[in-house]
């Protein structure tokens, strides 16, 4: 099997034309951060090339640091968004890490 074959979704052939069988998001947070990014852009909070530049930077850094199997596109997107949010002054690193610790410490099943 070639590299490209391994990347192709198995269900491509019989899938409906709307998505052509592709699962775009593998985890709910990926669609949330995508929606968050576009909603902020739609609201005029930043120019698209600002994010694009951050994404290119995040991808280039990530590609250098991980094996190809570990490549994680939405992780790069998340990192790029964090960078833009930080540049815009929407958060401080302290506020972000503080909230992350708080959320990570929740007992599981908190939202049930």
């Amino acid at each position: 099997m070639s590299e490209i074959d391994q990347l192709l979704p198995d269900e491509d052939a019989g899938a409906p034309p709307r998505s052509n069988g592709e699962i775009v998001f593998e985890a709910p947070w990926e669609s949330r951060v995508f929606g968050l990014t576009l909603a902020l852009h739609d609201a005029g909070r930043f120019e698209w090339p600002e994010f694009q530049f951050a994404l290119i930077t995040a991808i280039a850094r990530h590609e250098k640091s991980v094996e190809p199997e570990a490549y994680h596109y939405w992780g790069c997107w998340l990192e790029a968004f964090r960078a833009v949010a930080s540049q815009k002054g929407w958060l401080t690193e302290a506020a972000l890490s503080g909230l992350e610790s708080e959320l990570a410490a929740r007992p599981h099943g908190h939202d049930h």
Binding site: W29, W74, L78, W90, A95, L99, E100
Partner: peptide
């Protein structure tokens, strides 16, 4: 998943400031 936590934290920080709403995010998705 630390990435899921980070995404949730970012969303909360920005929605709490009123920069974007959960409804707008859901509309995009």
């Amino acid at each position: 998943d630390p990435l899921a936590i980070r995404a949730e934290a970012l969303e909360k920080l920005l929605t709490d400031q009123g920069l974007v709403t959960a409804e707008a995010i859901e509309g995009v998705i």
